[in-house]
């Protein structure tokens, strides 16, 4: 499903962020990605949702070399990928519910068809009473939960979560973690990036560590 072959990546100016990364993530797996701040976790996810292209090597996604995709195909691939951005990237002029509905709206679905889904998702992340509130009036943790609801609402094949528990309290973090595990149980591939090694080591799940631009794999210990 996701395959990195000798992938190198750098931003236009700046040093190499990723070097010679080889990674294979089978469909339906759950994978933590960890590493210190600045190690390249967000960059790796950015390559996966096709916001950047590798400077060398090859990334294949859903069986396609990502550099061969047309603009329309990129759009279609993104509909199969839900992303929780580290900086949330909510639209300030839309309500929380409209932000959550965005992946459904842009794929042409009718509002009546997904209204209940959106409501349910927002209730699940504990924001059932904030549906009409706009992001500028939400706390950091609330924005993060809106971003999470948006990432999973369209039931994508792959979920990319960039520090999705960074702004919430431990109880909510556990709830969010449980959501992603549940999504994985439903067959979704989950990539969960976090620098919080103490948190992710509680789970008996594969961990990929980024250091000096390359990856090494390990396994968390069951709590």
């Amino acid at each position: 499903m996701i395959q990195f072959e000798n992938v190198g990546f750098r931003y236009k100016r700046g040093p190499e962020v990723l070097q010679n990364v080889n990674l294979e993530i089978p469909a339906g797996s759950f994978q933590f990605i960890t590493g210190e701040s600045g190690a390249g976790k967000s960059s790796l996810l950015r390559l996966l949702f096709l916001d950047e292209v590798p400077t060398s090597g090859r990334i294949s996604l859903f069986g396609r070399d990502v550099t061969t995709l047309t603009r329309d195909e990129i759009a279609w691939f993104r509909r199969r990928i839900g992303v929780v951005f580290q900086d949330f990237r909510l639209l300030d002029h839309l309500s929380a519910a409209e932000n959550v509905a965005l992946p459904l709206t842009v794929s042409g679905a009718r509002e009546t068809a997904y209204r209940d889904n959106v409501t349910e998702m927002l209730q699940w992340v504990g924001l059932g009473d904030k549906m009409e509130v706009r992001p500028p009036e939400l706390s950091g943790g609330e924005k993060q939960r809106v971003a999470i609801a948006r990432a999973v609402v369209a039931s994508p094949d792959i979920i990319l979560a960039d520090e999705p528990t960074g702004s919430v309290d431990p109880a909510m973090a556990e709830r969010i973690m449980a959501l992603f595990v549940e999504m994985n149980r439903l067959g979704k591939t989950v990539l969960f990036a976090s620098h919080d090694l103490a948190m992710i080591e509680q789970y008996k799940l594969p961990i990929t560590t980024l250091r000096d631009g390359t990856v090494s794999s390990g396994m968390g210990a069951a709590a």
């Binding site: 759009a75 639209l91 002029h93 965005l102 842009v106 948006r150």
Partner: peptide
């Protein structure tokens, strides 16, 4: 910024 967010959410041109 808005257009970028729409594209990232899977909107076609």
């Amino acid at each position: 910024g808005t257009i970028e967010a729409l594209r990232l959410a899977g909107a076609e041109d």
